[in-house]
């Protein structure tokens, strides 16, 4: 069932920690420009699934295909290649604390992409500009607000020219007044046609960006479909119940 347009495909990924199976075989495929939103209760395995996709958590079973080429998960070289093509944005940013905003970006360009110092700097400045932070280039993470940190993290991931971006609750560690600036950067990415898989409980992202919603519970994808299918008022779905509860918490996000 290989789709010519499939950019990333995972098949039957399984992950357990000790005796606990956290991911019971996840399968999904992602087309160019598609945006998949992962939702579900805490502990449902969303972060684990995202981390298995770029093997930050090594899945015990299953396969990953990039452009229908199977990635050999045992090969360090192929893994590094996969990780360069599949960028990741973390809930708590994970900026390198000892480097300035601009060096957070150049270090990866220089060490991983082997770019020259000058080219790397030029590229980094362009990416910072994109997220509206050119004036913060020489500040250290400790000197940035949460929203600014997350925007630097996004710039850093984009500088690697990823084909897919994985976002793990990119706004949930932020103060409410900072959420907006990150959301607008993500919307801008979506507008540019970036392919994404995003775990989020931000209704404004789910309702405006999602091409497909996956509902995860107890380590399995239990429902999936377009927002229209899952959220329409004549449909009884876990997704709809869940989103209604999200709305009760923060109705202004709709």
């Amino acid at each position: 069932m290989s789709n010519a347009l499939s950019i990333l495909r995972i098949s039957n990924l399984k992950k357990s920690y000790g005796k606990n199976t956290i991911l019971h075989g996840a399968t999904l495929s992602l087309h160019q420009g598609e945006i998949i939103v992962l939702i579900g209760p805490s502990g449902g395995g969303k972060s684990t699934l995202l981390q298995c996709i770029n093997c930050l958590a090594m899945p015990e079973e299953g396969e990953i295909f990039l452009h229908d080429n199977r990635v050999d998960l045992q090969s360090a070289g192929e893994l590094n290649e996969l990780r360069q093509k599949v960028g990741m944005i973390f809930q708590d940013f994970n900026l390198f604390d000892h480097l300035t905003a601009v060096d957070n970006i150049t270090v990866a360009l220089r060490k991983v992409k082997k770019m020259s110092k000058k080219d790397a700097l030029c590229r980094a400045r362009r990416e910072l500009d994109q997220v509206g932070l050119s004036d913060k280039a020489s500040l250290y993470p400790a000197q940035l607000s949460g929203g600014q940190k997350q925007r630097v993290a996004i710039a850093r991931a984009l500088a690697m020219d990823p084909e897919v971006l994985l976002l793990d609750e990119p706004t949930s560690a932020l103060d409410p007044e900072l959420v907006g600036e990150v959301i607008s950067v993500i919307k801008q990415l979506a507008g540019n046609g970036m392919t994404m898989i995003m775990a989020t409980h931000q209704m404004s992202l789910i309702s405006t960006l999602a091409d497909r919603i996956l509902f995860m519970e107890n380590g399995s994808i239990v429902e999936q479909g377009t927002p229209q299918e899952l959220l329409s008022s004549d449909m009884v779905s876990k997704t709809r119940g869940f989103c209604e509860r999200l709305n009760e918490i923060s109705p202004e996000d709709l």
Partner: peptide, 10 residues
């Protein structure tokens, strides 16, 4: 997270 951040960049 510092380790993860680097690994995720390749």
């Amino acid at each position: 997270g510092q380790y993860h951040g680097a690994q995720a960049l390749g």
